[in-house]
Design a protein around this nucleic acid. Structure first.
Lengths: 232, 232
DNA sequence: TGTACATCAGTGAACGCGCGTTCACTGATGTAC
DNA sequence: TGTACATCAGTGAACGCGCGTTCACTGATGTAC
């Protein structure tokens, strides 16, 4: 909100820096114990400051949690977008696979941040409006791929949608890509659901003893989903 | 472990009853706050007993948690098996849809118990061996449907499995249904993954604003999965 | 059937802990004239 | 450029809370003879 010509005061710069340090310390704690164990006092301790000082930066524990959630959404969207952008534009399947794989890789190396956004909701915490836009970045990325692929022709096995589903998907398409048929939008939502479901199954231990090569299993699933979307 | 001829003493009967009451109270707390807030002291308070008395029944908080997890697995498996059993044997698609729908219905009305078993793992808690068998009941049920359906012929779009995936699926099939092709086993694992992924997406709020008729959307997804499995 | 002893369930006090948040304060930084 | 005042960051003590777990105990229930 500060104009770029007005140089920020030393105070403002230090404030931003400490805000970042607090979030980094909180993230470190998160990665060791999970979100339930995240405590303002522990963060303060790690930074060597009085616990009350943290309140100059975040008014409550929930506010800090919200900041971490927003950051996590942004971070995972960032890696997905970059991975997708590095694939030749006409290779729609490759773009989908690259984005999906990037999400999984990020999730594996940021387990608890992943849980924060895609795991069970933190009890007593209501996601504020600020998390909506960052949360939409990856779905939007996937829609973008589908739109361009649809332009060059897609072939998927159609299945008629029940009326209420059709109208939900119609409304979604209206927002994102009016030219896409409802059926395809439904497939996209399913693919997105499965993508996250597959990562959660792996991270939450439901495949222990059944799958040994997780990256290969994940990639295979994404290929099957690409088939379902009719990606060349 | 008591022989049925030896009538259980009054003490033993009361013990079982109180054990059940403790679990019920714990479940009630769970449904209000989630697993992180589950406390032995609060359970004791609700039952009007000293907090130390609970230790006669569960040696630690984790032991109580384990009991709840096992109970939850058993409960959801129970409803799935019953729903599946009530469908005509030759209607394989109907059996799959019935089982899947039963799982979703249970999850919706037992939100926090569902989270306990399919949400983010409770930090610092390692699932003991006792949870393995109950956790396998639903997957086994699904395999059973696929086996019988395979007997009458299944048609699904095959996709060759990468070597590591093929060997994982081979090993799984060996355990459960040696006659099933690896490719179909892979589809089954995917269907199970998507089933849980879809419920989690709904319950964890990732479809808020996109889907309004959740039961219809869920059922549609299960139909598409049935197509993918080649169920008639 | 009665008695002596062992087992068990439940009590209440206590230990030691960490938490979120508030408050009055000090001293440093920034701003307006 | 210097001064007076307002803003801000950080401190340390405190409030009130709930937690898991242990321990020595009492009294009731069950068991062996």
């Amino acid at each position: 909100v500060t104009s770029p010509t007005a140089p920020r005061t030393a105070r403002a710069r230090i404030r931003d820096e400490l805000t970042r340090e607090i979030k980094a310390a909180a993230r470190r704690q998160l990665s060791e114990q999970g979100s339930a164990a995240l405590s303002l006092r522990a963060v303060a301790r790690e930074l060597g400051m009085a616990s009350s000082a943290v309140y100059r930066y975040f008014a409550t524990r929930d506010e800090l949690l919200t900041a971490l959630i927003v950051d996590a959404y942004e971070a995972v969207a960032e890696v997905a977008e970059q991975a997708e952008a590095s694939v030749a534009r006409e290779d729609h399947r490759g773009r989908w696979l690259a984005a999906a794989t990037a999400v999984r890789t990020w999730a594996v190396s940021h387990r608890h941040e992943y849980e924060l956004v895609f795991g069970s909701p933190v009890p007593g915490y209501a996601a504020p409006q600020a998390t909506v836009d960052p949360a939409a970045r990856i779905p939007l990325l996937l829609v973008g791929i589908a739109r361009e692929a649809a332009g060059t022709g897609l072939s998927w096995q159609p299945r008629p949608l029940p009326a209420p589903v059709a109208s939900d998907m119609r409304a979604l398409a209206q927002l994102l890509a009016p030219e896409l048929p409802e059926d395809l939008v439904a497939r996209l939502v399913m693919a997105w659901t499965h993508l996250i479901g597959a990562i959660s199954f792996e991270l939450f231990g439901h495949l222990v003893g059944s799958v040994t090569d997780y990256p290969a299993w994940f990639l295979h699933q994404m290929e099957v989903l690409a088939d379902g979307l009719g990606l060349a």
